[in-house]
Design a binder for these strands. Structure first.
Lengths: 226, 226
DNA sequence: TTACTTCGTGTTGTAATAACACTAACTAAA
DNA sequence: TTTAGTTAGTGTTATTACAACACGAAGTAA
């Protein structure tokens, strides 16, 4: 029964990062054919003894040095000619990362790893343009209903920083007072009592994501909305 | 590069149907091991010359006789021991069908095909319980924001029928006046001027889904909500 | 003619959302 | 030390969306 011809299965990861200025995305420059010297999503073949999610984490760890981030399955791409080497399916994941937490390490199979501003992406190999488009759409939808944005920031952040991140993701301006009101009313963030020092002006309060409270509220059937 | 060991890849389909009474789900009784004589989702191996969606349509056609329905990718299940025969990934799809439009035909590899009320499902083989749970959750979410419910009804339907369908999917009562108001205001359905005849009482107006108008509204950035 | 069933319809209170501008705190430069 | 410049932080109000709610009209069957 299992001697059907089998496709190859790979994992591709769309890694979003945020440096405080703009939303960006991690791409690898390929050292080998196909698409040698082109930029592609970090990815690799699924091993037989790992689940797709485990595989995604391994791939990210070995090819980029990133670990321990938020990760979610995006979609499985199965176009017949999406890989010139043959029939290759790709289970795509997307990940959210605070770039400052990690040191980027290009694995041996790449010329380099680099963050790209999401609005200034280079040409990419395979069907990765489509994968990236799907990931961005998913992230926009997700961020509105679930507090995933915090994954992209340091543990403690100011409300202005959080708002600017949301503006980068959603690509629109958000009213400051409404944003702060909603965030604080939602109870998923908590003031730390500390202030961000070293800025030019008025030192702003630092907040942190209250994961315990968020999980408690979820059980009560509460709905997060930016 | 492609001589990595390859997993088998299958497609499984969660087919929702609606007979006017309750939401139900199509299961096959397996003629062969593993899970011989147990109920499972219609599924099969992905062929090398077809995309996953094409595969899902072929599987449904050959194993159940259904064709031409709404179909959407759900999730890729990749647990290491989810299939006793070896490493088998499954790309799951879910489908919406009006059972009255089709004749069920059990393919040669099954003892039978049968609709099961979604609240009275039998024990299922593989990890299909989990797949079904995911599909129901997705359908509930989907139906609230996109007018997919119409796929489950005949072309022309009364508002009472439509409302009852939504109540079946969402598993809650809906206020009749609010429901009708919202549906009509949304413009995605249009009165036909005909009435449903042959009922016991008051002959109700028949409506139909206005797909052209729906697509037009989508472009304007409109949002459907039940 | 009467009893019964389903269809079809509006209003109102409540909650969520969106729009909007100034003062206080602090820094840097004159 | 005064002044100019920048960012932080805060409430109110109008609008819109949502939820709750009951009865008369149309038709059928006895």
């Amino acid at each position: 029964m299992l001697n059907f011809p089998r496709p190859s299965v790979t994992i591709d990861c769309v890694v979003f990062g945020y440096d405080g200025q703009s939303l960006s995305l991690l791409l690898l420059n390929r050292k080998e054919e196909p698409f040698k010297d082109m930029w592609t999503l970090p990815g690799g073949f699924l091993f037989m003894e790992e689940t797709p999610e485990e595989s995604a984490r391994r791939v990210l760890k070995t090819k980029t040095g990133l670990a321990g981030m938020y990760l979610e399955q995006l979609f499985t791409f199965g176009g017949i000619n999406r890989d010139p080497r043959g029939r290759v399916l790709s289970i795509a994941y997307y990940a959210l990362v605070d770039p400052k937490k990690f040191e980027l390490i290009a694995g041996t199979a790449a010329n380099g790893v680099q963050w790209f501003d999401i609005n200034k992406l280079p040409k990419t190999g395979f069907d990765h343009k489509e994968v990236i488009r799907a990931a961005i759409a998913r992230l926009k939808g997700k961020v509105t209903y679930q507090p995933v944005g915090f994954e992209l920031l340091e543990k403690k952040f100011t409300l202005t920083e959080l708002q600017f991140l949301y503006e980068c993701i959603l690509q629109r301006n958000i009213d400051k007072r409404n944003f702060r009101k909603r965030m604080l009313e939602s109870k998923v963030i908590r003031a730390t009592g500390e202030k961000r020092m070293g800025l030019k002006n008025h030192a702003p309060e630092l907040y942190e994501f209250d994961e315990g409270e968020y999980k408690r509220l979820l059980k009560e059937g509460f709905q997060f909305r930016i």
